[in-house]
Design a protein around this nucleic acid. Structure first.
Lengths: 338, 338
DNA sequence: GTGAAAGCGCTAACAC
DNA sequence: GTGTTAGCGCTTTCAC
């Protein structure tokens, strides 16, 4: 990457002059058109890109706030990022210390390729959301000096904010048992995610314990999308035996599932009850309205910022884990009236 | 903001030592426990936050890539950010020059408060999405030296990528006319957005031209959300005269509208046809599936990056406007079979 | 074990 | 109009 020094040299002017021109202040300082032209030419030729850090260091002055990065994985459907961001906003308002927020998208399983985590040269602290199991492994193995808070994951090494995913799975099984179902099924997003594994495990364990029949073929893995849920239900409907209740470990997939059931003429909840996960805004408006596991995303986002802020201000040392309660929201698709 | 110099002074050590300790390399350089303790104490007391720019400048070395910022407003529903990010990813893969991506959330009408736009101290170029009319005004008036591309907005000053929003509105009116509707209505998100204004204008103008009746009371403004659409339809259903087709200028609102219509027992499309906007993933899976105006979000995102990259590499000077075609997707809710 | 000093790339104040 | 120079805050090398 060419520096301004090289531009100056190539254009045969001083560094200061080059800086003025490239900073758009050529006219203001009355640099001659010819010189300006020469400088821009040189910049173009060397594909000059200003070094933002240097510029900021020099002219930042008072306004340098500590930076908090939010790592959000790109592959998983971003349905919840909106709610998360709103929680962050709220937290920032209530804190004394001001921060800059920077969202760092990353690709699942490739967290290790984000160098800034190791070098600590982009932000003062980070919240990491949606790491895959490989990403989690990377985090455990790495020794990062940037304060970090994990969202919806556990760790001995880092602070974290989460709900008891296992328990939420159990609760859905319990709900199905209390509603006298005998055969149940589950729709699992095909992604590497500890939280999802735990939800599934909680559900299957509890189902077994309560004598609910959950056959292997009724454990349907599918793409983490509406289409995934839709296709999975179509696969299900070709089987001889059907469950009477399904747990979809994602609202999006449940939306696809509802559609597939509707198309096949199978009534929800009469012939099949359905429970989703997340409490996405859409769930109130599906037909029928979708029962779901409410995730206190906004509150958890707030807690992430608060924990991170404490870490960054040296107010805490040992990793702290903050557990939130989630609850079942019953709507028409299973046990509710609305 | 305290600097490492002050920490060193307070702890009565040299700057270098302080740096080592605070950078987590105290043990590596065998700084005594006492000294380390003193330094950390001092940092804590002065709430030391490392200046990221300085750190990066010093230790960045080779890996400093030019930074592209994506400005995304927080208030508007972020439904489309996912698709946009995927488009960006694709564009980054196909370019020679590598970039860092940074997402800068902002609050509608408050774009002017994002100082970095004026100072140019955070990124080398920016894509600005969802500005309100006030934000657009700010952009027109300001003189920014950072290369900028506007998404879905027009400007004489900046490059932009968009579809002809006015035309899309017209096309929906045309569709309604061709389907022999006489009375039509429209659901408008209550946000300040030039694109939405144009869609509305196109629709109303064309409706008038074609002799479709669009009364003032059937032009319903509501919150940009499922609930907004839901509430608006409930208001509508209390009126004496009803339209037989509605244009919802957002898929989310259309989802709420479908729910409200379903609850009232009014059949879509038989008694009321409905067309949404955006072609959100959900539209294929609503009941019935939603006709909608397809927005080539991914392609536009890609174009944004390409335009911006050209600007940043001095390959173009004059603002360039890139127009994309959108098209109507007909599904069951209006004119389609699927 | 710790201090002193150089220098990352840039901008701005001051020469001339 | 343009060149020279200081210094932003940090890390790291070298000296002792």
């Amino acid at each position: 990457m060419a520096s301004i020094k090289e531009i100056a040299k190539l254009a045969d002017v001083s560094q200061g002059t080059a800086s003025m021109v490239l900073g758009g202040k050529g006219d203001q300082y009355r640099i001659s058109a010819v010189t300006q032209q020469k400088i821009v030419e040189a910049a173009k030729q060397l594909n000059y890109q200003p070094n933002i850090s240097a510029r900021r260091l020099r002219s930042g002055g008072e306004t340098v706030l500590p930076i908090i990065a939010l790592f959000w994985s790109l592959d998983v459907r971003t349905a919840l990022i909106n709610r998360f961001l709103h929680g962050l906003q709220r937290a920032f308002h209530s804190l004394e210390q001001e921060y800059e927020l920077l969202i760092q998208p990353y690709v699942g399983n490739k967290l290790c390729e984000v160098n800034s985590l190791l070098t600590g040269t982009r932000y003062n602290g980070a919240i990491i959301a949606n790491p895959t199991e490989l990403d989690e492994q990377f985090l455990e193995d790495a020794s990062l000096h940037v304060p970090i808070v994990l969202y919806q994951r556990s760790s001995d090494k880092y602070s974290s904010v989460k709900v008891d995913s296992f328990k939420t799975g159990q609760e859905v099984a319990q709900l199905f048992a209390s509603r006298k179902h005998l055969k149940v099924g589950v729709l699992v997003p095909e992604v590497s995610s500890n939280a999802i594994q735990l939800r599934l495990q909680g559900f299957t364990d509890k189902a077994k314990e309560l004598g609910l029949e959950l056959s292997e073929q009724h454990t349907l893995y599918a793409d983490f999308s509406e289409k995934g849920g839709y296709d999975a239900i179509h696969r299900l409907l070709e089987m001889e035996e059907l469950p009477t209740a399904m747990f979809s470990i994602s609202d999006q997939m449940a939306v696809g599932a509802l559609k597939a059931l509707h198309e096949s003429g199978r009534k929800v909840p009469d012939e099949m009850e359905l429970v989703g996960y997340d409490d996405d805004a859409i769930t109130k408006f599906t037909i029928p309205a979708l029962s779901t596991v409410h995730l206190p995303v906004e509150e958890m986002a707030e807690a992430c910022v608060n924990l991170l802020s404490d870490l960054m201000q040296y107010r805490s040392h040992e990793p702290i884990s903050k557990l939130f309660e989630s609850c079942l929201i019953l709507r028409s698709s299973c046990g509710g009236s609305e």
